[in-house]
Amino acid sequence: MDAYDEGSDARHGPGAPAEPGPPPEPGPPGEPGRPLERPPAEPGPSLEPGHPACPRTGVAALSLRYQVVVAVALAVVAIGVCVHLGMMFLHVAPPNTLTKEHGRAVDEWVYPEFEQNWKLFAPNPLQQNISIQVRAQVRTTDGMTLTTGWYDLSAEDGRAIDGNLLPSHIQQNELRRAWDFFVATHDGENRPVGLRGSLSESYLRRIAVLRLDRDDAVRATTGGGGAVERVQVRSRTSNVPPPDWSREKVSTTPSYRELPWWQVPRDEAGGGVR
């Protein structure tokens, strides 16, 4: 068993790091929960090509000059870790005195790579099924314009997820999050707010066209060829019926939010992903 640790200080290939950079720090020795018991025996640094084993390791083996470097590294890492953790904390904490004051600094530190959201089913889990439905205006090959019926894309997703041990992100996240994105970037009148608003519209439209193409909606409507000219998206929101054992009553009548018709650019009408 003791053979475990021999040489386990293995650095990788020609290189180990000496990076400064944001996170690290000299872990306060009281590592939480001390799951870290025994470090590998000795960092015997004798791993490099043709390198005779170094006799001593550790700070004690270093001359003063080098010890100063170690001290600086310790300080940089310590400060880096503290600042980083502080920023992460403020980022996930509710708006508060500090973030009102220093919100910009926090955002600058966090975005784009350290963004996070852990409000998992919190404060309350979603209690409504939001179905995204779409229909299209199709121009047939002989120039007529027909309107398809509503396609319930979320129901399609739901069926794809049913009995699935490994649901795909395209079934579970794509449409659901595209709709969240749309709602977050549009006002009550379905007008886009800023660049993100218009991006979310294009995104939703492209998903709609892609799914209609996959469902072969054009053929189903025209019985032959044709091209999608415009699409319309609506959401159908219905409350999850309360459990049998609760005495709660909620309305189960769905409510709809209907978006305006969107023109589909010609090069997109084929359905995007190829």
Partner: peptide, 15 residues
């Protein structure tokens, strides 16, 4: 370098 790598590692582990 070994010491610095340890320090950085331990900091990252804490993070």
């Amino acid at each position: 370098l070994d010491v610095v790598a340890n320090v950085v590692h331990n900091g990252a582990l804490l993070v």
